[in-house]
Simulated scan of single mutants.
Amino acid sequence: MTIIDDIESRLTHHGDKGNVIYRHRIATRITHWTWAIALFFLLLSGLQIFNAHPELYIGKQSGFEFDNSVLSMRAMQAADGKVDGYTTIFGQSYKTTGVFGMSGPADNPSYRGFPAWATLPSYQDLATGRVIHFFFAWFFVAAFLVWFVASLISGHLRRDILPSRADIRGLPKSLSDHLRFRFHHDGRYNVLQKLAYAGVLLVIFPLIILTGITMSPGMNAAWPWLLDVFGGRQTARTIHFVCMALLVAFFLIHIFMVVAAGPLNEMRSIITGWYRTDPEKKEEHTA
């Protein structure tokens, strides 16, 4: 009996528990945790790199003579001499002192896009941030390739990730069940999970990898067509940033859903592969 089994036995009656099935293969579990670790370091080091120039553009060029900025996090001085942090999105500025643009103690503020606690290293060090970022980027890419090949061979991609027509027809009911926190533990991914995982694994992951490659001058020499595909290095940087923001949003929703659906069962399945299904409903017999 595992530790999780022991905890479950204390929380539920034996007769109320369903069957335990093998849900996640080892390749899925290893790549899941590899991505979790890699993305943690990629996020913090990526924000360190962003802070070197906390502004995003659309187009192939940027500079003082261009007006193509879509996001900036800067400290600006008002007419009264007071300095505050501002985040500007599509020309609309918002005061974000303490978080974006300017953060830290009032007597010794730091003028930077993201605050020190959100970057790696915490102090401004572009060179170290780039070393960390590129190191974990290759782990991320390797894990993606392993997962993709393994999923094709095992049928995991077709069976569990790509939604079928029947899944799409059941989308309204699945959405309604989730809004009412009614979860069905039958060992299969529901249509919302499939759509979310397909979006992350087959759209966001490839995009974040390709836009990252597009920002590399060395890769531009080898694959110059990437600059045309993504509309230039500056647009690729913006898309890369948006993908990162979407992954953070997915992570927060993912953690919330794991807790809501039953964290013990969900964690066991992604650690050991074994998952407990709902107990079978017994038919009621009337005289």
Rank of each mutant, 00 (worst) to 15 (best):
S9F: 14
L11T: 03
T12Q: 14
T12N: 15
G15F: 03
D16C: 08
K17D: 09
K17N: 08
N19G: 09
N19F: 12
V20I: 13
Y22M: 05
Y22F: 10
Y22G: 04
R29Q: 05
I30V: 15
W35I: 10
W35A: 11
A38T: 11
F40I: 12
F41P: 03
L42P: 02
L43C: 12
S45K: 09
Q48W: 00
P54D: 09
P54T: 07
L56Q: 01
I58R: 02
I58K: 05
S62V: 10
E65Y: 13
N68K: 07
N68Q: 07
S69P: 02
V70C: 09
S72P: 10
M73T: 01
Q77A: 11
A79F: 07
V83W: 06
G85V: 01
Y86M: 07
S93P: 14
K95G: 11
K95I: 08
T97Q: 06
M102Y: 03
S103N: 12
P105H: 06
P109Q: 09
S110L: 15
P115Y: 07
A116W: 05
W117H: 11
L120D: 09
P121S: 07
Q124E: 15
L126A: 13
A127N: 03
R130Q: 08
H133P: 00
H133G: 09
F140W: 06
A143D: 04
W147A: 10
F148P: 03
V149S: 02
V149E: 00
G155D: 01
H156C: 09
D160H: 03
R165M: 06
A166H: 13
A166R: 14
D167G: 04
I168N: 05
I168P: 05
L171H: 08
P172N: 04
S174L: 06
L175V: 11
H178N: 12
H178G: 06
D186Q: 07
Q193G: 08
L195S: 07
Y197N: 00
V200Q: 08
V200G: 06
V200Y: 03
L202W: 02
L202H: 05
V203H: 02
I204E: 03
I204F: 08
I208M: 12
I209M: 01
G212F: 05
M215A: 12
S216A: 12
P217R: 06
P217D: 04
P217S: 05
N220Y: 14
A222S: 14
P224R: 07
D228P: 06
G231Q: 05
G232M: 07
G232C: 08
R233E: 12
T235F: 14
A236R: 01
T238N: 03
I239Y: 05
C243W: 01
M244P: 11
V248P: 02
F250K: 01
L252S: 11
I253F: 14
I253Q: 14
I255F: 13
V259K: 12
G262H: 00
M267P: 04
R268N: 15
S269I: 00
I270L: 15
G273F: 01
Y275D: 00
D278V: 02
E283H: 12
T286Y: 15
